[in-house]
Design a protein around this nucleic acid. Structure first.
Length: 671
DNA sequence: TTTCCATCATGGCTTTCGCG
DNA sequence: CGCGAAAGCCATGATGGAAA
């Protein structure tokens, strides 16, 4: 059966690719290729880089892949990637663009960085190499045409074992129970305390430590009982600053009629198919949706576009309007308050973006307000200015006659010069900012005390204990709310989802017939969320569906909540797991706020945080308990290993050293 | 406890253009 | 034609303050 499938796969491949290829993986290792995995059997379609290039060219021609104009870019990125990684045209792709893709890309990025390439360049290269990987995966899918969902461990084990030594031989030589290995291959999870066997397998196959063990869900951290200090929660610098900042409300609230007209014309230009007769960047079209995330009565004038009698919403317009109205508001803000002090009627025009001096002064003011820190948010208005004054495609550049009030509007040459100067000025500022850009807010500051513990999750466990202690055993609403909140905290330790996914998490089939995301499968509670519902839809989520077990410790809580408490808060048809009595039919939109309240009350030394922070806490715990277990952390967060490494790099050095010290102490005891 | 309205902050891409 | 850079889309999250 299996062989047949493989034959079919090969047939299919032969039709696609010209040259026949050997089955064994004998990829020559380049000199610079340090992370080359040892020779091992695998069931992946044997495909060389040269063949992949041909497929890409064919597909590009038939319109199934990158556009013709992007093809050279994709090509040059791959060529550079191959040269740097030591691959040749006749090299087999093997796992290089598959399982070990992230490792390869990370190494490639590192090399580019060492060459002194700018960040934007590296991002572009990454994006381009990704297109190649996507093509490989697409071909794999076509070839495999099997929908089985393997666990990561299962797949990794299969790749190590397939076609090589007999299972029994491996088991005995690696000193792993034969039956266990068979079970794992069928998809069951190793028991706790059996990690040693996986490590034996890693050694047996010459894999780096963690290749297999990292693929498991997190190990339960040993109980720690750090006593909570009763001192005041620490003050967070960003919050204090924000509190000060928002006292001044400078944004333009009631635009005059002419500005409204200008914006509507501009919006039409940005959203219409024809760019309202003007030139526009190829990617300069703003998307619209007819199904906004907010209720009908919350839609505002600056984001709505009526096209053929149908009202649609443009999210980008809302964001851009916010930035623009802030700038205009500042222009007419009194000088004493730090504004430009211009008359309100004079500045209410898109043409205000032409003034280079004003833009510069505004940026300076914003930087000062942000505590002297240049951050990316400040760039937004500059990007709008650069875009709208672009020498060719700029809206202002092309619409001189729509701004008769501007002094330069009478003369085409003067107008063009003004636009060009504004464009250049904005570009220069953007470049300057992007090269010196830093963060002005530390998202982990509110949980710094927790993160500094050897086992941060222990603090959350303490919090749930405190919650247990204050259970309102009245059987009423208060108890239902208590049970809901407690489950919320616990669930986030097991499955640290982003807020939106948590809010929209369902425990019953939706009215449209989609199955519940949180459900019991073969006696195991699992959460399965469609790729399209993730923020990183185009990133990590694209590669891997979210289908994770909920930790066993929570199962009884889930059942108790489902059977008793949830019914008190929501109507029977409500599919969402977390609900509030205020909106019994919808999701609990106040979840973020409620989590903040809970964390403020029960987390030690914490002034209140959002659910996002739980992702930090879980990832930090994993990396503290198992230094350099990047893959495990990425697995739990449903992020890319690369992203996790980047965000938690600070945990690599110190904790690895501590861990190494402990290990060596043990190893050398009695010396 | 929940909702509403602001403001501020940032990430993660993809595609196209201009130049030599 | 290939390389390197430019352009910019599209979201989401975090938080304060106040009111329902």
């Amino acid at each position: 059966m299996k062989e047949k499938g493989q034959e079919r796969r090969l047939e299919q491949l032969k039709r696609h690719y010209t040259a026949p290829v050997p089955l064994d993986d004998t990829t020559p290792a380049g000199e610079r290729h340090r992370f080359r995995a040892p020779k091992r059997p695998m069931t992946l379609p044997p495909l060389t880089f040269a063949q992949l290039k041909n497929v890409m060219i064919e597909r590009s021609r038939s319109g199934d892949a990158v556009s013709a104009s992007s093809l050279p870019n994709a090509m040059s990125a791959l060529v550079q990637f191959m040269a740097e990684r030591g691959f040749r045209d006749d090299s087999l792709i093997g796992t290089h663009l598959r399982a070990s893709y992230y490792k390869q890309v990370a190494a490639h990025v590192k090399a580019l960085r060492e060459e002194g390439r700018p960040g934007a360049y590296i991002r572009n290269r990454k994006s381009l190499v990704k297109q190649w990987r996507a093509l490989v995966l697409e071909l794999d899918r076509q070839a495999a045409a099997q929908g089985g969902t393997e666990t990561p461990l299962q797949r990794a084990l299969r790749e190590l074992l397939d076609g090589g030594l007999p299972l029994k031989t491996v088991a005995s030589r690696a000193r792993v129970p034969h039956a266990s290995l068979k079970r794992w291959l069928r998809g069951s999870l190793p028991q706790r305390g059996k990690l040693g066997h996986l490590q034996s397998l890693e050694r047996f196959f010459g894999q780096p430590p963690g290749t297999l063990t990292d693929l498991l869900p997190i190990a339960r951290p040993s109980a720690g009982s750090e006593s909570a200090s009763e001192a005041e929660p620490p003050k967070i610098a960003y919050r204090a600053r924000l509190g000060e900042q928002i006292k001044l409300k400078y944004r333009l609230k009631d635009p005059c009629e002419t500005l409204v007209k200008e914006w509507k014309d501009f919006l039409l230009h940005k959203t219409s198919l024809t760019a309202s007769g003007l030139k526009r960047q190829k990617r300069g079209k703003w998307n619209t949706t007819s199904r906004p995330v907010k209720p009908e009565d919350k839609v505002q004038w600056f984001e709505s576009v009526t096209f053929l009698g149908q009202r649609t919403i443009c999210q980008t317009a809302a964001i851009t309007w916010t930035h623009f109205s802030q700038y205009v508001g500042w222009l007419s803000l009194a000088v004493e308050s730090g504004g430009a002090g211009l008359p309100a009627e004079a500045v209410q025009s898109l043409a205000s973006l032409l003034n280079r001096e004003h833009l510069e002064a505004y940026i300076e003011w914003r930087v000062a307000r942000a505590g002297g820190v240049l951050h990316r948010g400040i760039c937004s208005i500059l990007k709008l200015a650069a875009s709208i004054c672009h020498p060719v495609t700029g809206y202002l550049t092309q619409c001189r006659n729509r701004f008769p009030v501007h002094p330069d509007a009478r003369d085409e040459l003067a107008w063009n010069a003004t636009c060009r100067s504004a464009h250049e000025g904005a570009r220069q500022l953007i470049q300057h900012i992007e090269s010196t850009c830093e963060l002005s807010r530390d998202p982990s500051a509110p949980v710094a005390a927790i993160l500094s513990l050897p086992n941060p999750l222990a603090a959350i466990k303490d919090a749930t204990k405190r919650m247990d202690a204050v259970r309102p055993s009245t059987g009423g609403m208060a108890e239902a709310i208590w049970a809901r909140d407690r489950l919320m905290v616990k669930l986030l330790t097991s499955n640290p989802l982003r807020a939106k996914n948590l809010i929209l998490l369902t425990i019953a089939p939706s009215p449209s017939g989609e199955p519940a995301q949180l459900r019991e499968v073969n006696g195991v509670w699992r959460i399965a969320i469609d790729k399209k519902d993730f923020k990183n839809l185009a990133g990590a989520a694209k590669d891997r569906a979210y289908d994770m077990p909920v930790r066993r410790e929570l199962w009884s809580d889930i059942e108790a909540y489902r059977d008793t408490y949830r019914k008190m808060l929501a109507s029977p048809s409500n599919p969402y797991l977390f609900v509030s009595s205020k909106s019994p039919d919808g999701p609990m939109y106040s979840l973020n706020r409620q989590f903040e309240n809970i964390s403020k009350r029960y987390f030690s030394d914490c002034p209140g945080v959002g659910p996002q922070t739980m992702r930090h806490i879980v990832a930090t715990t994993i990396l503290k308990m198992h230094p350099n277990a990047w893959a495990a952390a990425a697995y739990v967060l449903h992020d890319r290993e690369e992203t996790v490494r980047k965000n938690y790099a600070h945990l690599a050095s110190d904790d690895a050293a501590r861990w190494l010290d402990e290990m060596m102490t043990k190893a050398l005891s009695g010396l």
